[in-house]
Simulated assay, not measured.
Amino acid sequence: MRLLLRTAAATLTAAALIGMPAQAAAPAVQIIKVYYDSPGKDTRSSTSLNAEYVVLKNTTRKPIQMEKWILRDKTGYKYRFLALVLKPGKTVTVRTGAGDDGTSTVYWNRGQYVWNNDGDTASIHRSSDLKKIDTCSWGRGRAWTHCP
């Protein structure tokens, strides 16, 4: 048994010494999906604007107070969260258009689109120090992207 433990420890040490990448921890709040090209013609209707959205997930085991956190695009459009507690393992969808905020969906209340269909970057920033927590980028392609 000791030989097996020594062999396992030596293997882990050797991997670290030769620079094998360590598995990075998931950010506390992760961007998991961006639907950047709403279906159909871009009419700026409420239905069309709300079909453009970002889904964020709390990857921790603790509730996260999202008040004043910022979701932004590469251009600098910003959505600032109001009083929202994102429960452990839960998601919140940020829709571009207008609607009534709830615990799982909030609305940017914009009259025009945010996310560029030919490529953009979504990023989420913590309110206390504006630290970037996670990003998701895409290029021209389908209407949505899953973010790793």
Rank of each mutant, 00 (worst) to 15 (best):
T60P: 09
T135W: 06
G139V: 01
A9H: 10
P39T: 14
Y53Q: 03
Q112D: 14
T43Y: 02
N109D: 10
E52C: 03
D120L: 07
I133N: 06
I64G: 00
S137Y: 10
D37Q: 13
L49G: 01
T47F: 11
A28W: 06
A98W: 14
I133D: 06
W138G: 00
Y35P: 00
L3V: 08
D73M: 08
P148G: 12
V54N: 00
A9V: 08
L3G: 03
M1F: 12
S48N: 15
K57Y: 03
A22H: 06
Y113N: 05
Q30V: 02
P27D: 02
N109F: 04
V92W: 03
S104M: 04
T105S: 15
G99R: 04
L82N: 12
A122Y: 01
D101E: 05
T103D: 07
N58G: 02
W138C: 00
K33S: 09
G97Y: 04
L82D: 14
R44V: 08
T7I: 13
I31S: 00
D129G: 05
L12G: 03
V34K: 00
S46D: 15
P21E: 10
V54K: 00
R61P: 00
H125T: 13
A16N: 11
R126M: 10
T96A: 03
V114S: 01
L17A: 11
T60H: 07
K132I: 15
A9F: 12
M1Q: 09
V34R: 00
G99D: 09
G89F: 11
M1Y: 11
V114E: 01
L130A: 12
K33I: 13
R142N: 11
C136W: 07
M20F: 14
A15L: 15
Y107K: 02
A24R: 12
G141A: 06
P63V: 01
T135S: 15
A10R: 11
G89P: 11
A22F: 08
S104V: 10
A98F: 15
L5P: 02
S38F: 04
D120E: 08
L56P: 01
G111R: 09
C147N: 07
T91E: 12
Y113P: 01
K68R: 12
V106P: 00
C147E: 10
R44Y: 11
R140S: 12
L12T: 14
A22L: 12
L71W: 01
L5E: 13
T13M: 07
A26I: 00
S127G: 04
S137T: 15
G139A: 07
